[in-house]
Design a protein around this nucleic acid. Structure first.
Length: 274
DNA sequence: TCCCAGGCTCTCT
DNA sequence: AGAGAGCATGGG
C-alpha cells in the first residue's frame, strides 16, 4: 500500500482487501450512498467522496492532514486483513464467506454515532435505519455547507420524546434520549471504556435503556475497536445454528467481529446455510 | 394485506 | 434462567 497526495486528493495505491462498496454498504455504517462507482458520505464531521479505480482508492478533496487524522484509521488501514483471512480459512466453513466478503474492512467510527445508530437499528431494516439517521442529522445536527453533522449527545440530551417525533423512530426515541443523557453526563464515558476489557465495556454500555447485547457489541466493534466483540443478530444466530453448532471455532475468536462481518455479508446474499 | 426488520424491556413462570 | 408479548414504523 502506498499513499500519495496530489491535486488535493489522496490516492491509496495497491491497497489490499478493500472493496469500497462492500465496506460502505454492508450495514456497519449508515451515512454512505453510492452514485454509480462514486461513494459519498459523512463521518467525523467531514464530508468525503471516494471511489476505487483499478487498485487505487481515491479520496477526493482530502488533505494529507485529514487523511492522517481521520481516514487512515477510519478505514482501518493499519490492519493486515490477509493474515486474518488466512487464519480464518483454516476452517473450511470460512472459505466461501472470506472469498465473498474479504474486501470488507471494519470502519472505526465515532463511538457516539455508532452507539446511537445501532440503538436505532434494533428490530428495524437498513433502508429505514438510514432514513431515521438522516432525519436525526438534518433536525438536530449542525449544518456545515452541504451536509449535516451527526448531533452530539449534548444537543440531544435536552430534547424530549415529542421533539424526536420528526424522526419517526417509534419506541426507539426514548432509548436515544437515555443514551444522550448518560453519555453527555459522563455516566457512560465512551472514551474511558476503550481502556476496559470487552466484557467490562459491554456491561457499562448496557446500563443504557435500550442497549442490550447486540447493540452493545456493535458499538464495541464499530465504535470502540474491540475486534473480539461478536454482535449476534437474527442472521448470525441462524448461521451459528446451521453451520457452527452454536460456537465460533478457535481460529476466529480473536477476530470474531471481523469474522462476523464476513458471515453476515455472505449469509444475507446466499442464505444462512452453507 | 401480511410478514419482517443488524432487539430490547417488561412480565410471568 | 428462560419464554413470550408488545413495541412504532414502513419496506418488500
Amino acid at each position: 500500500m502506498k499513499v500519495i497526495f496530489k491535486d488535493g486528493n489522496t490516492y491509496i495505491e495497491d491497497v489490499e482487501n478493500f472493496d469500497v462498496a462492500a465496506t460502505l454498504d454492508c450495514g456497519q455504517a449508515f451515512r454512505w450512498e453510492a452514485d454509480g462507482n462514486l461513494w459519498h458520505g459523512v463521518a467525523f464531521d467531514r464530508r468525503l467522496k471516494l471511489e476505487k479505480i483499478d487498485n487505487t482508492v481515491i479520496l477526493y478533496d482530502t488533505s494529507e492532514q485529514d487523511y492522517n487524522e481521520i481516514w487512515h484509521n477510519y478505514f482501518d488501514l493499519d490492519r493486515n486483513y490477509g493474515e486474518i483471512i488466512d487464519r480464518l480459512k483454516t476452517d473450511e466453513r470460512f472459505v466461501e464467506p472470506c472469498n465473498y466478503g474479504g474486501g470488507i474492512r471494519l470502519l472505526n467510527q465515532s463511538p457516539w454515532e455508532t452507539l446511537c445508530s445501532f440503538i436505532i437499528s434494533q428490530n428495524n431494516n437498513i433502508p429505514r435505519i438510514k432514513g431515521i439517521i438522516d432525519r436525526l442529522c438534518r433536525n438536530f445536527g449542525e449544518k456545515q455547507g452541504d451536509f449535516y453533522t451527526f448531533p452530539t449527545p449534548y444537543a440531544l440530551a435536552e430534547k424530549s420524546v415529542e421533539d424526536l417525533a420528526v424522526l419517526r423512530s417509534g419506541f426507539r426515541a426514548k432509548y436515544i434520549l437515555d443514551a444522550a443523557k448518560k453519555v453527555s453526563s459522563g455516566e457512560v464515558d465512551l472514551e474511558a471504556i476503550k481502556k476496559l476489557s470487552c466484557d467490562e465495556a459491554r456491561e457499562v454500555l448496557m446500563k443504557i435503556c435500550g442497549v442490550g447485547p447486540k447493540v452493545a457489541d456493535c458499538t464495541l466493534l464499530f465504535g470502540l475497536g474491540f475486534t473480539e466483540a461478536f454482535p449476534k443478530d437474527v442472521w448470525i444466530k441462524r448461521v451459528m445454528e446451521h453451520n457452527f453448532g452454536g460456537n465460533l471455532p478457535e481460529c476466529a475468536v480473536p477476530y470474531a467481529g471481523i469474522a462476523q462481518q464476513y458471515l453476515f455479508f455472505y449469509a444475507r446474499s446466499h442464505g444462512d446455510e452453507f
